[in-house]
């Protein structure tokens, strides 16, 4: 089994340590990991802003880089969801062949929870964390039961985090309300976006948690922007950093 590691553009640029955590964690579980060089972006920022056609070349390139791996794994639910849900259509609408990558791409959560299934992580994290259930993780990749649906509760990220010793995991009252990032939405509707960000951080803080954690660095980045401006007493951490804390 060979895993192709997908590192989204902003993780490459802003949060490389999350990519490193992902790599170390997978390697520690005995998985062979490769990182195809020359990765940039999946094309989601352009597409969500209304310029899906600007992401065609990127989708083609993505397919070329990753099509031969058994699994493609990335530490960002929203980017993975974009490749999975939208690349096949983008490629086929422009007369390209059916997208292979979309069939074996996984967010790291799905990959750990559904494929690798480790019983515990050699990590100790004696802190209270509030789980950020991000929109595309919940409603596109189904990483947890969406609050709108009448289905039994489950949460794959929570389930993985609870395999770490010492940790206390809580969830905010509005369990999966959007943090207001939304790509270009954040700058096209800055007032609403910021208000959503503030409300979300406050909701996480009300749990008494020391950290906000989750599978989407883009949401964490947005909330971090709010926290730092207001000097709020809570921090953000990608949950892979928790799983790999002792590596």
């Amino acid at each position: 089994m060979k895993v192709g590691l997908f590192i989204p553009c902003y993780i490459n640029a802003v949060y490389p340590h999350i990519g490193v955590a992902c790599y170390k964690l997978l390697t520690s579980l005995g998985i062979e990991v490769d990182y195809p060089l020359g990765q940039t972006c999946c094309g989601q920022p352009m597409a969500n802003a209304g310029f899906e056609k600007d992401s065609l070349t990127l989708a083609k390139r993505f397919e070329q880089l990753f099509k031969d791996y058994t699994y493609v794994v990335g530490p960002s639910a929203s980017c993975v969801a974009f490749v999975k849900e939208n690349h096949p259509r983008i490629l086929s609408e422009h007369g390209e062949h059916v997208c292979e990558t979309s069939k074996h791409i996984y967010d790291i959560t799905e990959f750990l929870h559904d494929v690798v299934k480790p019983e515990h992580f050699a990590s100790h994290f004696p802190h209270k964390v509030s789980l950020h259930n991000s929109c595309h993780g919940v409603r596109e990749l189904h990483l947890s039961s969406a609050s709108e649906l009448t289905i039994p509760y489950y949460n794959k990220i929570r389930s993985l985090l609870e395999r770490v010793s010492g940790i206390t995991v809580v969830e905010p009252e509005r369990i999966d309300e959007c943090c207001g990032f939304g790509g270009m939405f954040a700058v096209e509707e800055p007032e609403v976006s910021t208000c959503m960000g503030h409300d979300k951080v406050k909701d996480h803080m009300a749990t008494g948690a020391e950290y906000i954690t989750g599978a989407d660095s883009s949401c964490l980045m947005h909330m971090e922007g709010v926290i730092e401006r207001k000097h709020l007493p809570i921090r953000t951490i990608h949950y892979l950093e928790i799983l790999s804390a002792q590596l």
Binding site: C135, E140, L149, C178, G182, F185, E189, S193, M196
Partner: peptide, 12 residues
């Protein structure tokens, strides 16, 4: 059309 963060809660 800008009034949407694509959170998809409405669809659910």
């Amino acid at each position: 059309v800008s009034a949407c963060s694509l959170c998809l809660s409405c669809s659910n």
